[in-house]
Simulated assay, not measured.
Amino acid sequence: MRFNKDKEVSKKRIALLISAMLIFIIFSAFISVKLYPLIIAIASSPEKMMEFKAWIESYGIWGGVMLMTLQVLQVIVSVVPGGPVQILFGLIYGTWKGLLLSLIGMTLGSVTVFFLVRAFKYKFITMFMSKEKLDEYRFLKDSPRLEKILALLFLIPGVPKDTLVYYVGMTDLNIKKFIWIVVLMRIPSMMFSSFIGNNIGMGNMMSSFLVLSALCLAGLAGMVYNRCFIKKSNEKSAYQQVM
C-alpha cells in the first residue's frame, strides 16, 4: 500500500513539474513576442534608448533583474534577437558591468534550455523550431570533434547560437563543458554589443556606428560560413554512414 501511495505522489509531482514548465514556456513566449517590437524600436532610436535607460535605473537593483530576465527569455524562446538586448545592457550599465549581467542572463537561459531538452528531448525542441531546422545540426550527434566544432560555432558571429543550444542538449556533452563553451565562446560578440551600447549612452555615435557596421559584416560572413560548414559536414556524415 505504501509503495502505491509513494508512486501516486511521485506521479503528481512529475505532473506538477511539467505543468509549471509549460506555463513558464507559454508565458515566456507571450512576453517575448509582445516585447519584440519594443526592443527593436528602442535599439533603433537613441532617444528611446535613453528613456528606457532612465526607466530601468528608476527600479534600482530590480531593473538589472528585469533585464536579466529578458535575456533569459530571449535565449529560451529565441524570438527576441540577442544583440539589441545586449546593447541595452551596455547602454545602462557600461561595457563591463553590462557584459557581466548579460552573460549571467545568457548562461541561466542556456542552462535552462539544456535541462529542459534533456528532460523532454525531441518533443520540447520541436515546440520552438521545425524538424528541418533541427536536422541541419544532425552531424553533431556522433561527431568525435563535438567540443571543438561547438567552440568554433559559438565563437563565429552570425551563427544562430540560441538555436544551437537546443541541439546541444541532445548530445552527450556534459553540463560543465557546455557552460564553458557557451560562456567563453560568446564573450567576444557580447562584449562588442555591450561596447556599442556604452558608446551610445556616452553620445559616441560614430564609434558605435563603426563597431556595429564591423559586427554586421562579421555576422554576414559568419552566416555564409555557417551555411557552407553545415552543408559540408552533413554531406560528410551521410557519406560515412553509407561507407
Rank of each mutant, 00 (worst) to 15 (best):
S58W: 09
V80K: 11
G105W: 10
L103R: 02
P37Q: 01
A41Q: 12
G94C: 08
G63M: 11
S19E: 02
Q86D: 09
L88D: 08
F24S: 10
M106A: 15
L91G: 06
I56C: 07
I87D: 00
Y93P: 03
P37W: 01
I42S: 03
S44F: 11
L91K: 06
I39A: 04
V65D: 01
I42A: 06
W55C: 14
V72L: 10
I18G: 02
L108S: 05
Y59A: 15
Y93H: 01
M68R: 09
K34F: 12
Q74K: 05
G94Q: 05
L67N: 04
P81F: 04
P46A: 11
P37M: 01
S32I: 08
G105N: 07
W55S: 14
L73F: 06
G63K: 01
L88I: 13
F30H: 05
S32P: 11
L91R: 07
I92Y: 00
P37S: 01
I18E: 10
S19Q: 02
M66S: 15
Y59H: 15
M49P: 04
I40P: 01
V85I: 09
L99I: 02
G82L: 10
S102F: 08
K48D: 07
L73I: 14
I87Q: 07
L88Y: 03
M68E: 03
A54F: 13
L108P: 07
I61C: 10
F24A: 14
G83C: 13
S45D: 14
A43E: 15
L38H: 05
T107D: 08
K34T: 10
I25M: 02
F27I: 11
L35H: 02
W55N: 15
I56F: 00
